[in-house]
Design a protein around this nucleic acid. Structure first.
Lengths: 245, 245
DNA sequence: CCTCCAAAAAATGTGCACATTATGCACCGC
DNA sequence: GCGGTGCATAATGTGCACATTTTTTGGAGG
């Protein structure tokens, strides 16, 4: 008699594994170039290999992993040019957002942005680097979301998530990503409904960030301890046979 | 003895099925709301159900199909608001593209655009509606590609492909999507390096197109003849048992 | 010592059998 | 007649057993 639990429909498992890997990816715990083999991951998460496989392919379709036929999944190792392109895309998109935003700014939005700027300054004053980085990205998210277009928000979120992975590779110290006063200048231009200035400031801002990118090839890493990376996540299902310390 | 051909590695099959469905989707042959069941598709294409399944999920990840757990794949039925959002995203993106383009236009690019405009006019003169629609979309593609940023080109291609599916639902006659002179006005503004005018013209252009959208709810359709839609594609592999006319 | 090649080992890809979930339909009580 | 209920049927989801491909290993030859 086989007590195997097969076909147990549990969509939550898919999602949990997906979120776990995505989170590790976004937090930079998975270094660029790391091979994500199916079997070890299945053992780590305590789920079947097919499930891992599905998640991996999904992440590949979203361009968050690099899938090579018959060779498995790897964390992408973006070129410096790749990163520049992502930044440029972000810059171009934000220019478009600003062009639309000057037509519909109101005091409510300006007040919200001012509040955000204040938070950024506060984080900078108390030297909270993590918060600074997070708020800095949030500023740009705030701008697109002001347009209320989910499509645009999604595109930006995509670009941002990509670049956050990238800075973990190329920004050695990850110091203050965005200077607050540059953000302030954008808001000021927005307040004046001055599109040309807003675009120019935003452009300078991005070029500034791009200029700080450094090629840190030394990071060979290949962090081989996949288990350690995912251990904080409790196993979703006990492996039926063996495979436990 | 089983002569089953299992595990026959043939990545081309995946791609062929993917392209076939995607093409049908882009050409509007698959009406909105149509259910894409796995088993019939497997029979039509002459491949295993797993292969269809994989392709369907991939298309779902790309948001080209709507996947509902345990209920299969359906051709998305976009709201009029959905479409407006896609158009707005395109418009915003193009504004950004233009803001970047005015900084680096040269005679070569302007000449290329002029050539393209001439093609559009020729198509319009001879009443070639299909060519007009195609060239009209190509104009906007041309603009982003001038920036040489694959990331941006991909984003635009994504938006365009989505909206082409949509117009097939909501544009009853699918008459001249973009007036050529509006495209010409954009090029003219670009030639003058007049960003504000270029953005304004582009904006008007898109609002014009958006304004033409009509809600054509009558299209209940549910085109049940999936086989007929995909028949032009020759079966990739003969089904081993039965299932042949 | 290095290079090249063959065989073993490991990892990925695929068809299939079956579990699970949804759907259609006849039946029954009200 | 009508709405809900239970069963039969169809469709989707999943584990598993392999096939295929890639990578590693281990020598033999130069």
């Amino acid at each position: 008699m086989r007590v195997q639990r097969i076909g147990k429909a549990n969509p939550a498992e898919d999602e949990a594994v997906y979120q776990a890997i995505l989170r590790a990816l976004l937090e930079g715990k998975l270094k660029a170039g790391t091979k994500l083999a199916e079997t070890p991951l299945a053992a780590i998460f305590g789920v079947s290999r097919e499930r891992i496989r599905k998640v991996l392919h999904r992440l590949g379709a979203e361009r968050r992993l690099e899938m090579i036929p018959n060779r498995g999944a790897r964390v992408p190792r973006p070129t410096l040019d790749d990163i520049r392109r992502v930044y440029e895309a972000h810059r171009v998109l934000e220019a478009g957002v600003l062009s639309q935003l000057v037509l519909r700014v109101d005091e409510v939005l300006l007040a919200q942005l001012d509040t955000h700027l204040e938070e950024e300054r506060a984080a900078a004053r108390r030297g909270d680097r993590a918060a600074s980085v997070r708020l800095s990205g949030a500023f740009h998210v705030h701008l697109v979301e002001a347009l209320g277009n989910p499509e645009l928000s999604r595109i930006l979120a995509d670009l941002l998530s990509r670049s956050s992975v990238m800075v973990s590779v190329y920004e050695p110290a990850a110091q203050s990503i965005c200077a607050v006063d540059e953000h302030g200048a954008i808001v000021a231009a927005l307040r004046d409904r001055d599109l040309m200035r807003a675009i120019a400031v935003s452009r300078e801002h991005f070029l500034h960030v791009e200029g700080r990118l450094r090629l840190d090839e030394a990071a060979a890493s290949e962090s081989e301890d996949l288990a350690a990376i995912f251990t904080p996540v409790k196993p979703l299902r006990r492996k039926p046979r063996s495979a436990q310390s």
